[in-house]
Design a protein around this nucleic acid. Sequence first.
DNA 1: CGAAAGCCGTATCAGAAATTTCAAGACAAT
DNA 2: ATTGTCTTGAAATTTCTGATACGGCTTTCG
Lengths: 290, 290
Amino acid sequence: MRSGNNVASADGSSLAERIRHEMDAFTPSEKRAAHLLLSHYPFAGLDTVAEFASRAGISAPSALRFVTRLGFSGFPEFQKHLREELEAQLLSPLAKASPGDKSHGAPALSSFAEAVIANLTATVENIAPTEFDAIVALLSDRRRHIHFTGGRFTGALARYAESHFRIVRSDVHFIESQPALWRDRMIEIGRKDVIVSYDIRRYQEDVIALSEAAAKQGATVVLLTDPWLSPIARVARHILPAHVTVPSNWDSSAGLMLLTEALVAAVTKHLWETAKPRMEAVERLRNPKS
Amino acid sequence: MRSGNNVASADGSSLAERIRHEMDAFTPSEKRAAHLLLSHYPFAGLDTVAEFASRAGISAPSALRFVTRLGFSGFPEFQKHLREELEAQLLSPLAKASPGDKSHGAPALSSFAEAVIANLTATVENIAPTEFDAIVALLSDRRRHIHFTGGRFTGALARYAESHFRIVRSDVHFIESQPALWRDRMIEIGRKDVIVSYDIRRYQEDVIALSEAAAKQGATVVLLTDPWLSPIARVARHILPAHVTVPSNWDSSAGLMLLTEALVAAVTKHLWETAKPRMEAVERLRNPKS
DNA sequence: CGAAAGCCGTATCAGAAATTTCAAGACAAT
DNA sequence: ATTGTCTTGAAATTTCTGATACGGCTTTCG
């Protein structure tokens, strides 16, 4: 495994560039392989050796010799490199897709913002509409009680959700994730309850335990998590994954915030008939006069 | 939107779309596979069955059943389809990244997301770089105590900020905005303290009062608010406004979240020498073993 | 012209990957 | 409780792919 060699191009340049550069040094068969690969780069290299060789009009061993000469230990490694290159290339345009970009703002801020925006886009595109709608229906069911919970950081999001839903409808609760604080409340959780759990990586034991306990009691569990899915997924009825990776030592919860706000908006609209008077009442309580 | 729509998919369009559509008909294992695939679409499906299954946390046969259910005769055919789809998509850059596209996602969700993203862009573009940097410097000053506070909804953001900064540095506090809860704490607030207040429209009396009291004691006030500026602006030393308007009965705090996370990232980087051991210590406490 | 060197493809093998089988477990309905 | 259905993963099986050895062929150079 001397993978430390020069296979991975340091600059953003692709393998294709190196192939063009070394083209003269190839044998005739290798040139045929190289030309095929470049003409359909990199897809031509993604099926089997036999297929690749046949399209190039050469034999399988020649194709093997070709990739070996490029510095790969074998065909699978060659394909892996192509896939990774492709993935990187496909993802970057999204981040750079801000047109009028000469944005000022601290450089740290604007590049961070780009990453967050890319996350939001990716998050929305990967949500199943039915999943989202099903959750909206669930949270709009006034016969059910709703409980929000989350971990160290995501707990704040759970609170954020709770503080909105509390106004839109009744029977909305926030549960601290520490077992000592929910053990006794668990007796009230049953088939008609909905648990909305927030949990992203460095998944938190107590949130998992809470969700599993609630599921065991027959409650419906809704999970907001990262794309790698918290273990809570095992007991969750519905899952909304959000992308969280940003250039920071921390994960970003902006995607979870987006989903939360979208849920709040949708449920508010759905329950508008009953939500409106509630919101007005709250407004009146805050401004007793005027 | 009937003209100039996508030319990419002549057949049943993207497989991803179909998966989202049939999501609720899947078994739990299939859902895990589906979520993995969608979260890294389509690259997650380009490895071997074993790899794919392992990442999804299911067994190889379950992964096989998943692709079979999608209508493919086997895994290789499934992968071939993914590759072809990818190639088609890459060849027609117009097909993707079109801003106002009729993308999937619940319509409510995607239009909501578009508004949020527009807000984030506008927010970043209107931040004065010096302002952002000055705040980072302020929060990176370890001789100062930092206090976060916020209102009904924004309080959750203040907590979110606090839970991160608490790990990055010492002397970080959260203050409840109810006067009864901060009156006595005010005697400890002085010239060396920093108050970070979150307040958006329907500006909240108690947050304003708290901020003004702190300012009167000589504390430095940092304000995160909406573009119309909370009254706190009069006593604030630094202001970061975020756009909040979305198609909903509520305002969106996603911009505030973005700014918060950007501040956390910047300060963490700035204080890395001392933040790193702190973060490691926290990690060790959470995982006493391993 | 002859010989050496290198290049290429056929045939074959080893091993990995996909697929099928099957039994255990979960769940719902009765 | 009990049965039947559905789901799942471990293990056995099959298929197929990537890799290699070897001999023929072409090219090159003395």
